[in-house]
Design a protein around this nucleic acid. Sequence first.
DNA 1: TTACAAAGCGGACCAGCGGTCCGTATCGTC
DNA 2: GACGATACGGACCGCTGGTCCGCTTTGTAA
Lengths: 208, 208
Amino acid sequence: MTERKARADAARNREAVLAAADELFARSDSPRGVSMEQVAAAAGVGKGTLFRRFGDRTGLIRAVFAARSEAVRAAVESGPPPLGPTAPARDRVPALLDALLGFKLDNRHLSVALEDAGSGSPYAAEHYGWWHGVVRDALAEVEAVPDPAFAAHALLAAVRADLVEHLVAVEGMSGEEIRGRLGEYVGKVLDQDSSCPGQGGCGASATR
Amino acid sequence: MTERKARADAARNREAVLAAADELFARSDSPRGVSMEQVAAAAGVGKGTLFRRFGDRTGLIRAVFAARSEAVRAAVESGPPPLGPTAPARDRVPALLDALLGFKLDNRHLSVALEDAGSGSPYAAEHYGWWHGVVRDALAEVEAVPDPAFAAHALLAAVRADLVEHLVAVEGMSGEEIRGRLGEYVGKVLDQDSSCPGQGGCGASATR
DNA sequence: TTACAAAGCGGACCAGCGGTCCGTATCGTC
DNA sequence: GACGATACGGACCGCTGGTCCGCTTTGTAA
């Protein structure tokens, strides 16, 4: 009925391609170094198949990326605090960014590939729109942030894949280091200056 | 001596190429749509000349970009406050970011072209390293910022060319609007006193 | 003014890419 | 087993960045 009779080989090939592409992107240093022909060969499939199923190179990358990020997405959409929607906004924003950063650290090459995917900017991808919406809405509940939409863009920019890649590969930072710095930075954006008037007023406990 | 006399035609061609490329990138919607052959043709020059002088596509783009940004660079390096080095850091940081944003607004397409220039990430360009250094050093003089190096990366990321392009082209924001929002945002990162109220105050402020 | 190397030029040429196309093999069904 | 629908695959195309080398232009020194 509404169900299209999916052919078995088609489904199998789809999986094979996703797996092969994932593998190749992870292995390769430069995403541009991975050609569609290579992916096809690695998956044991013809080039035509690849393009028919995914449209173009960008479509393939997006599909692989979507498959990989399913878990994080689920955690954000309906997981427990602090990532899930029930968490208080003040806690959720850092958690969201940390989760996204963690994901990019775990899938560096793939993430870079997605961002420089030929057609259109990274901002055109549905993936970005989704993250921006989530972060914006969470920020909107934090009074100290006057412009949630812009702040969301700015914060998300701080975890751009190529920046993360640069910090790791060129500046030699560890994942944990980056997470720490990002946490501090996000905290700075979220905290309201009004809560801490004058200098030296509020000292005391450095909650870690 | 060490100076080789530059041939007149060589210099003339160089200028012609830079001008033609600048023009083409400014006109074209997508930087990838501008081919080296087009640039060569527009400059009235052979393709070989182009590659001999600039090495590769990335080199060309960087050269055009460098020529364009000379003025801003000079203003930052030895201009009057608030952009120049004599300005107090607290005023200079917003000024720097505003200047960079302004430049990207004025040279949107070229900036996007530079960022997605094939070889290497945007972070590999000398241009980025320079900006990062300036912003980092200025931030270091603002006590409220615990990690100038990371904060500089994060702030610079907020004015990435493709983000700016997105805000203008897709979200329909005006240049002035963006400047305003950025100003607010930067202020948020810079403000705030060095200490915070006990409870959940300013995220993790672990001195390492 | 002429002669002559060195510097520079240009466009034919190449390998490789993303993407298309269509004859052929495979699948699911009756 | 037969048959239509569906998916396959790789030859093929246009175009790109980049190379190469015979030819022209330039600056200089006689």
